[in-house]
């Protein structure tokens, strides 16, 4: 399997209020390699959920194609390899989490002790071990999201498609979720998830796919993007000409100079010049940069 997920020229249309076709996704192309963790980003209404639904076969593409684990999206083979968490986690209100997982497990083809064992293990993993026999209608939104995560992980799928994965989770729940997803990634599972929590994306993803108005804007490697966004700055006492390499510098009120660099290379050269001139280096700082700023700028550029 060379590609865990392939999306080619995907167009998804819905019928609008007056019967006219509304394009939610307009010719989207991207792919996810096996074992990769990809964040699927975009503003509200960008077409993220529609794309994920097309990947699971819940909507039929008007044109283009999607493949999951090498099989056409929506086919039984594709579904056998995929786990899915819907955007809004709703489960049968009159079933318990354990019964819910048993139901989905049986549909997945699991049975007997294997199913029972895996269901209990997953419920413990998502922190619902003590609530496994309470009816879903008595659970909080966050607990229901945990049920959803557990059902998505059931059967150890090769590909996980998670829509708004952190929705409804508190900070502790998010941390636990990150641990669960990292553990799956370490097992070789491919993850594609949409989220508005950019910090989660930053912490978990290898790559991001950014879309707006149903079109691809950018695909970026997360580490490269982090490097790109990282900013360095130094504070020194000496001459302004000592730097010259900074695109942003200023003299401060106490007579010292502040200089900012976009890359590590510029910082190193500047430090060498400061030391060579025998000037005093007062402070060196590294700023990680904000994914949020990047997101806003990227969306702004595309508009």
């Amino acid at each position: 399997m060379e590609r865990a997920i392939e999306v080619e020229g995907l167009v998804v249309t819905y019928r609008g209020k007056r019967g006219a076709a509304v394009e939610a996704v307009r010719g989207l192309d991207f792919e996810v390699r096996p074992g990769e963790v990809v964040g699927f980003l975009g503003p509200n209404g960008a077409g993220k959920s529609s794309t994920l639904k097309a990947l699971m076969g819940f909507v039929e593409p008007a044109s283009g194609s999607c493949r999951v684990a090498g099989h056409p999206a929506g086919s039984l083979e594709a579904k056998r390899h995929a786990g899915y968490l819907p955007e809004v986690a709703q489960y049968y209100p009159f079933l318990t989490p354990l019964e819910t997982l048993t139901l989905y497990g049986e549909l997945q083809g699991l049975k007997g002790d294997e199913l029972r064992h895996e269901a209990h293990e997953l419920l413990d993993m998502v922190g619902l071990g003590a609530a496994h026999s309470r009816q879903n209608r008595t659970l909080s939104k966050g607990m229901l999201q945990r049920v959803g995560i557990a059902q998505a992980l059931l059967g150890s799928p090769d590909v996980l498609v998670l829509d708004e994965v952190t929705s409804g989770l508190d900070p502790v729940g998010r941390r636990e979720l990150r641990a669960v997803l990292r553990e799956r990634r370490n097992r070789g599972c491919t993850l594609l998830f949409s989220s508005h929590e950019l910090s989660e994306v930053e912490m978990l993803c290898d790559r991001i796919v950014l879309i707006e108005h149903g079109r691809l804007i950018e695909e970026r490697n997360v580490e490269a993007l982090k490097d790109e966004l990282r900013r360095f700055s130094i504070v020194y006492r000496g001459q302004a000409s000592m730097i010259g390499l900074s695109e942003e510098w200023r003299e401060r009120s106490d007579g010292t100079f502040y200089a900012r660099f976009t890359g590590k290379k510029g910082l190193m050269q500047a430090m060498e010049r400061v030391f060579a001139a025998g000037a005093e280096l007062i402070d060196v700082t590294a700023d990680q940069g904000s994914f949020e700023d990047y997101f806003v700028q990227a969306i702004g550029r595309s508009a």
């Binding site: 699971m56 819940f58 579904k79 786990g83 819907p86 049968y92 549909l107 059902q151």
Partner: peptide
């Protein structure tokens, strides 16, 4: 209405 169809149909059933 309850949006319980998606998790069901995400399983290998037609």
């Amino acid at each position: 209405n309850r949006r319980t169809l998606c998790p069901l149909l995400a399983r290998p059933i037609s």
